[in-house]
Amino acid sequence: MATFGKFDTSITPSEEGQVFQVDTHVKFTIYGKSQTGTVTKQLKNSAVIELDETPDNQQLITQSNGVLIINYKHMKKI
């Protein structure tokens, strides 16, 4: 297997993101409705969130495959 250079894929979250470590349960609003989920990956200014499944958000889960990217400014730790 050939390598074409070293790629450093580590991402350092912003100062706001330090609170939202992986496996942190969070709350946020999307499309005017409050949702909850768990941080699965941290990015620079946002995080990948796995949605908590509820009877009210089945369409959102289907559309997004159960995963959303949310900015740290729009999340609250619960």
Score class of each variant (00 low, 15 high):
T9W: 04
S10E: 05
I11C: 00
T12M: 09
T12C: 02
P13D: 04
P13E: 03
S14E: 02
E15M: 10
E16P: 06
E16W: 05
E16H: 12
G17I: 09
V19E: 14
V19S: 14
Q21G: 02
Q21A: 14
V22Q: 06
V22S: 01
V22E: 09
V22G: 01
D23W: 06
H25S: 11
K27S: 05
F28K: 04
I30P: 00
I30H: 07
Y31S: 08
Y31H: 09
Y31G: 06
Y31E: 14
G32P: 03
G32V: 00
G32L: 02
K33L: 10
S34I: 07
T36N: 06
G37K: 07
G37E: 05
V39I: 13
K41A: 11
L43N: 11
K44C: 02
K44M: 08
N45W: 02
A47K: 07
E50T: 11
E50F: 01
L51Q: 12
L51K: 12
L51A: 09
E53G: 01
T54Q: 15
T54A: 09
T54E: 12
T54Y: 07
P55A: 14
D56G: 05
N57I: 04
Q58E: 14
Q58A: 15
Q59D: 13
L60C: 10
I61R: 13
T62W: 12
T62Q: 15
T62H: 14
Q63P: 04
Q63C: 06
S64M: 12
S64C: 13
N65V: 09
N65R: 13
L68W: 00
